[in-house]
Amino acid sequence: MSEAGMAGALGLNGLIALFVSAILFSIGVIGVLLRRNAIIVFMCVELMLNAANLSLVAFSRMHGIEGQIFVFFVMAVAAAEAAVGLAIIIAIFRHYEVVDLDRFRLLKW
């Protein structure tokens, strides 16, 4: 029932969208953990946000329009976050002349 019921309400495409969103999120996690370049790590965070948006849109077919409204707010917060984050990266680059995350160890041991 569970698989059939889910496919019935979401459609096959909705189910595919959920799995694609899970895979995209995992790829974003790999990118965050595997790269040292702060800008690429930041881009992977944007990819994870986009994956979350995809799952919200897929669920909005099941539960109504609120999912899409939530996506709207996620995008607004992501835009604010991108602006502030890139400003921080520029400010750090002025001090260290690199964007290598392993070199920023002022707050580490």
Binding site: M6, S21, F25
Partner: peptide, 21 residues
Amino acid sequence: LGVLTRLFVGGTEARPVVEIA
């Protein structure tokens, strides 16, 4: 990936799916 897949499949098992779609 495992947790998310489990969540997506298991979440609709526990609750009946609302068919407004």
